[in-house]
Amino acid sequence: MRAYDTVLFDLDGTLLNTLDDLKDSVNFILERHGCPTWEERELRSFLGNGLRRLMELSVPGGMEHPGFEEMFEEFRVYYTAHCEQKTRPYPGVEELLQQLKGHGLRMAVVSNKDHEAVEELGRRFFPWLSVCMGQQEGLRRKPAPDMAEAAMKALGAAKDRTVYVGDSEVDFQTARNAGLPCILVSWGFRDRPELEALHPAALVDDPQSLFLELTRPCGSVEEKNKM
């Protein structure tokens, strides 16, 4: 028997490469307001805590900047209208989800994006996902466990058969707060040494390796998690 029958996925940096659209949107607003812009390698470390936190880290002075609220609202509107310009699933991810669906695993997305955006991106790119859970009223954003717990409830999932998959320290802490094992992927928004230092249940470099981790039989996973 497989150790897991339910998988909760992070979205940005795990299933979807959203970096270019986020960078272009942030820099468009910063340039409009006369602020310095960011390179991709710099901006990627700001991601993982939602759009507001991204702008807090991107705008000089953060929330103390006198025009911050106006800039954040402009960014939110602009990004919503341009969030699919360059965004694409990472290579092999669509095939991975099809394989997992074929093996009978239940799957959900848990993201710090706005709930409506998460649902739309899920419909467009990942029809194999049963539940798409984004930031919404009444649920604290990650790394709080609220959205992960809501996704498990929606799926009827048992905690001891569920695993969380992400690409950052935010995802690792979300899994820990929800009492779930965490598998991290190295193709997202953090460098591999940062992820290794967290000591996740597994760290994988490609979707096929992730498939093997998610479909391991019970014994091999339990032994691995004790290492």
Results as ranks from 00 to 15, higher is better:
Ala3Tyr: 10
Asp5Cys: 02
Asp5Val: 01
Asp5Lys: 00
Leu8Arg: 00
Leu11Cys: 05
Thr14His: 02
Asn17Cys: 09
Thr18Lys: 05
Leu19Met: 09
Lys23Ser: 08
Lys23Arg: 12
Asp24Pro: 07
Glu31His: 12
Glu39Gly: 13
Glu40Val: 15
Glu40Thr: 15
Ser45Ala: 15
Phe46Asn: 04
Leu51Asn: 08
Arg52Thr: 07
Leu54Asp: 02
Met55Val: 06
Pro60Ile: 02
Gly62Arg: 13
Gly62Ser: 12
Met63Lys: 15
Met63Gln: 14
Glu64Gln: 12
Glu64Asn: 11
Glu64Arg: 10
His65Glu: 09
Glu69Gln: 10
Glu70Ile: 14
Met71Ala: 12
Phe72Glu: 01
Arg76Glu: 14
Arg76His: 13
Tyr78Met: 08
Thr80Pro: 13
Arg88Thr: 05
Pro89Arg: 03
Tyr90Asp: 08
Tyr90Lys: 03
Tyr90Gly: 01
Pro91Cys: 09
Gly92Phe: 10
Glu95Tyr: 09
Leu96Asp: 00
Lys101Met: 09
Leu105Val: 10
Arg106Asp: 00
Met107Leu: 11
Met107Trp: 02
Ala108Arg: 01
Ala108Gly: 01
Val109Asp: 00
Ser111Met: 02
Asp114Gly: 15
Asp114Cys: 15
Leu121Trp: 09
Leu121Glu: 06
Arg123Leu: 14
Arg124Ser: 14
Trp128Pro: 13
Leu129Lys: 04
Met133Gly: 05
Gly134Asp: 07
Glu137Tyr: 13
Gly138Ala: 12
Gly138Val: 07
Arg141Asn: 13
Lys142Phe: 06
Pro143Arg: 00
Pro143Gln: 09
Pro145Gln: 06
Pro145Thr: 07
Asp146Leu: 04
Met147Lys: 13
Ala151Asn: 11
Lys153Gly: 15
Ala157Arg: 06
Ala158Leu: 14
Asp160Pro: 11
Val163Ile: 11
Val163Ala: 05
Ser168Tyr: 03
Phe172Tyr: 11
Thr174Gln: 04
Ala178Leu: 02
Ile183Leu: 08
Asp191Asn: 12
Asp191Lys: 11
Glu194Cys: 10
Leu195Gly: 00
Ala197Arg: 05
Ala197Asp: 07
Ala201His: 08
Asp205Met: 05
Asp205Ile: 08
Asp205Cys: 07
Ser209Lys: 06
Phe211Trp: 04
Phe211Pro: 03
Leu212Ser: 12
Pro217Gln: 14
Pro217Gly: 14
Cys218Ile: 15
Val221Leu: 04
Glu223Ser: 14
Lys224Phe: 12
Lys226Gln: 15
Lys226Met: 12
